[in-house]
């Protein structure tokens, strides 16, 4: 007994040495030191390159930062983002609801929607819609016995802006549908069972029970989607929508100040993304906070969104 104890308390000298050799703390820090030094040197070279290389044209960039056509381009980009996101949320919600519906037809349709619009690159969808006239010359509504109600040439309404909105909304809706579906799935089944056992119709259960609770899971990824979408809208340059990037392009096509104008574009994207990130942070914090508060906000948001009346006991 006592033998074992001593041997445990005082290990063999060789073991002590070994342990000493094992605890070589500084060695683990070498990597960090090298990394830090390397990063500093690299930063120095990058910053110097930015500062001294005249081709960057910082003054020129600063001069264009608030240029009227840049401003209007920025405005177009923001409007596109907001409109597309809004439509994508609506379409995405509809598709998501179809995807969890009891009807296999609706489910498969929604599945095919997501498969297609997430699978085809956004740029290709964009150019497709822009060229819809090649496929369909005109849209007309003709009723039997009444005759033609209206007819419109595709090219008359498929303006670049309209094509951009249609294409990117449909595309983005594919992503939103998946996010919203995941949110719906995360609401425990007991919730809708309790309501349906009391006779609530499916539609109302979705609207009052399931979707409001799904919101908590939907908000954070939707923030990310909005940020991605802002940048994605720069693709509309390809179909000549005068967004931020296109406006910059049309200036440097004339003046050849390519790099300074790309800097202007980057600065504005960074600025807007930063603002959105801050907003997203607060939104997430709000939704992650004490259940009761976040949920009363959810309810309020949904009531606004769906136009149901909020009166009485709501705190």
């Amino acid at each position: 007994m006592s033998k074992v104890d001593t041997s445990k308390a005082r290990p063999q000298p060789s073991v002590v040495e070994e342990v000493d050799r094992l605890v070589v703390v500084p060695r683990r820090n070498y990597g960090i030191w090298i990394g830090t030094a390397f990063t500093l040197v690299l930063s120095y070279f990058i910053l110097r390159a930015f500062a001294v290389n005249p081709a960057f044209g910082w003054e020129t960039a600063a001069g264009y930062l608030f240029h009227p056509s840049i401003m209007s381009g920025l405005m177009t980009t923001l409007v596109l983002t907001v409109v597309i996101m809004f439509l994508a949320i609506i379409i995405g919600t509809i598709v998501a609801v179809m995807r969890v519906s009891p009807s296999p037809v609706l489910r498969s349709f929604a599945g095919a929607y997501v498969w297609f619009f997430r699978g085809v690159p956004a740029l290709i969808q964009l150019i497709f819609w822009f060229n819809l006239a090649l496929l369909v010359r005109e849209f007309s509504l003709t009723l039997p016995f009444v005759g033609e109600i209206f007819s419109i040439r595709t090219n008359d309404f498929m303006t670049p802006f309209f094509s951009a909105v249609v294409a990117l909304s449909l595309c983005e809706a594919g992503y939103m549908a998946e996010i919203i579906r995941a949110g719906i799935k995360s609401v425990p089944t007991g919730q809708s069972e309790a309501a349906s056992a009391l006779g609530m119709p499916y539609r109302n259960i979705l609207k009052r029970i399931v979707l409001p609770q799904a919101m908590r899971f939907v908000v954070p990824p939707t923030g990310n989607e909005a940020i991605n979408l802002l940048k994605l809208t720069s693709l509309v340059t390809f179909i000549a929508v005068d967004d931020l990037f296109y406006s910059a392009q049309s200036i440097y096509a004339r003046t050849f100040e390519t790099i300074p104008l790309l800097i202007v574009v980057a600065v504005w994207y960074l600025a807007v993304v930063s603002i959105m990130s801050v907003g997203q942070h607060f939104l997430e914090r709000h939704f992650g906070r004490s259940e009761t508060r976040s949920q009363s906000l959810t309810t309020r948001f949904l009531r606004n969104a769906f136009g149901t009346r909020a009166k009485g006991a709501a705190t």
């Binding site: 425990p188 007991g190 919730q191 069972e193 309790a194 309501a195 056992a197 009391l198 029970i209 409001p212 609770q213 259940e291 949920q295 009363s296 959810t298 309810t299 006991a313 709501a314 705190t315």
Partner: peptide
Amino acid sequence: ATVFQLFNLYPHMT
């Protein structure tokens, strides 16, 4: 009307 083992109250409502 049914009363459930795990209550199944709606958490987003008072």
